[in-house]
Computed example of a mutant assay.
Amino acid sequence: MKPKVIVEGTVGAGKTTFIEVMSKKLNLEPIYELSDQKLVEILEKFYADPAKWGFQLQIYFLTKRFEQMDLAKKKVDVIMDRSIFCDHIFPLTLLKCGKLTNLEYEIYKDLHTTLLKLATAPRLMVYLRCSTETAIKRIEKRGRSWELKVDKNYWYVLNQCYEEYFANYNLSSLLVVNTDNIDEKFEGLDDLIKELLKSKRKVICEYDGKSVKRSVRNAGDSR
Rank of each mutant, 00 (worst) to 15 (best):
A119M: 06
M125Y: 01
N102P: 07
R82P: 00
D110A: 13
S145Q: 08
H88N: 11
K117Q: 06
Q68W: 12
L62M: 11
K74N: 13
I42H: 03
K52N: 10
K75C: 06
D87W: 12
K141G: 04
I139M: 05
T132S: 12
I79T: 04
C97V: 04
N153M: 10
K149Y: 08
T93Y: 13
Y127R: 03
P50E: 11
E106W: 11
W146V: 08
F46H: 12
A135C: 08
W53Y: 15
I139G: 01
K152N: 10
T114W: 14
H112L: 12
I59V: 13
A121Y: 10
T114A: 15
F66H: 09
Q58T: 03
G98N: 09
T114I: 15
D151H: 11
R138N: 02
Y108E: 02
F90N: 05
E104P: 04
D110H: 12
T63V: 04
I139K: 09
R142H: 10
D81P: 07
S131T: 07
K109A: 01
D49S: 14
T101R: 06
C130T: 10
L111V: 10
Y154L: 01
D87I: 03
A119P: 01
Y47S: 05
I84Y: 07
T134K: 10
T101C: 04
E44T: 01
L118R: 15
L71P: 02
I136D: 11
L57Y: 09
D87G: 07
K75G: 07
F46I: 02
E41M: 08
K75W: 13
I79S: 07
V126G: 00
K74Y: 10
E147Q: 14
P50H: 11
C130P: 03
D77M: 09
L43G: 04
T101D: 06
V40P: 06
L111G: 07
C86E: 11
R144K: 14
V126R: 07
D49F: 12
F66L: 05
N153W: 07
A51M: 09
E140I: 03
M125S: 02
S131Q: 03
E67H: 04
P91Y: 14
A48P: 00
E67C: 00
G54L: 13
R138A: 01
S131K: 03
R65W: 10
V78Q: 03
R129M: 11
F55D: 09
E104R: 13
L95I: 11
I136N: 08
A119H: 08
L115D: 08
W53F: 13
C97F: 10
Y105Q: 07
K96C: 05
I59C: 10
L43T: 04
S145A: 08
F46K: 06
